[in-house]
Computed example of a mutant assay.
Amino acid sequence: MKVNVRVKKAAPEVNLPQYQTDLAAGFDIEAYLGAGDVRPFSRKRSVVIPIGERRLIGTGLHFQLPPDFELQLRPRSGLALKYGITLTNAPATIDADFTSEVKVILENRGNAPFVVEDGMRICQGVIKQVEKAHFTAVDELTETGRGGFGSTGTR
């Protein structure tokens, strides 16, 4: 199933998200550090994330999702393995009624400062359909025998 997602770019040099393979579930999203500054990528801007710190990184992308869909932002496995770069709030949820610029909280859990440059693929996005719940207050729940952390053991 393909879902039509409208995307507004903050500047002409911002790239639309791209799936890297035909069967990929997630599409790559790039950093955009321009904050309204429209210089070409030939003059790269960068942000350093020191060890143990996090930075809010722009993407230059505004998404308009259909009702009952969300955009989930997730870390890229290569950045996590090689450099210890992850998303602090993964998976981040972008609701269908949020149309401001999507920004990513990148965290450096690695052992060296990490440099984010314009156009670097910093996370992946996954479009998911959302199921809405109806909540009912009750006095009792059906007993399941489960409870607390580690209640099922480790083996």
Score class of each variant (00 low, 15 high):
Gln20Ser: 14
Ser151Asp: 14
Ser42Phe: 04
Ala25Thr: 05
Leu23His: 05
Asn108Ser: 10
Ala112Ser: 14
Thr88Ala: 11
Leu33Asp: 01
Glu101Gly: 05
Val102Asn: 08
Ser46His: 13
Ile127Glu: 09
Thr93Val: 15
Glu70Ala: 06
Val115Glu: 07
Phe135Val: 09
Glu140Thr: 04
Thr152Ser: 11
Arg121Gly: 15
Phe41Gln: 07
Thr93Phe: 13
Pro50Ser: 06
Ala31Met: 13
Pro17Ser: 03
Thr152Tyr: 13
Arg121Ile: 07
Ser151Met: 07
Lys9Met: 05
Ser151Asn: 15
Pro91Glu: 09
Gly148His: 01
Leu56Asn: 14
Phe149Pro: 03
Glu101Ser: 04
Lys44Gln: 10
Ala10Pro: 05
Gly26Ala: 09
Leu23Asn: 03
Phe135Arg: 06
Gly147Lys: 03
Val38Gln: 13
Pro113Lys: 07
Phe69Arg: 07
Ile94Phe: 15
Thr21Lys: 00
Ile122Met: 10
Gly150Phe: 03
Gly148Gln: 01
Lys103Gln: 14
Val7Asn: 10
Leu33Lys: 02
Pro75Ala: 00
Lys44Ala: 07
Ala92Thr: 15
Gly153Ser: 12
Asn108Phe: 13
Glu117Cys: 10
Asp97Cys: 08
Thr59Ile: 01
Val38Lys: 13
Ile51Met: 10
Gly52Glu: 01
Tyr83Asp: 01
Met120Lys: 08
Ala10Tyr: 03
Leu65Lys: 01
Glu13Phe: 15
Glu53Met: 10
Glu107Gly: 07
Gln72Asn: 02
Lys2Ile: 10
Ala92Tyr: 10
Val38Asp: 15
Glu140Tyr: 04
Asn89Asp: 05
Thr99Trp: 12
Gln20Trp: 12
Ile94Cys: 13
Gly78Trp: 06
Glu70Met: 04
Gly36Ser: 02
Asp139Pro: 03
Ser42Gln: 04
Arg146Leu: 15
Ser100Trp: 06
His134Ala: 09
Phe149Ala: 02
Thr142Ala: 14
Val48Ser: 09
Phe69Thr: 11
Phe114Asp: 08
Ala92Val: 15
Asp22Arg: 04
Asp68Gly: 08
Ser100Ile: 06
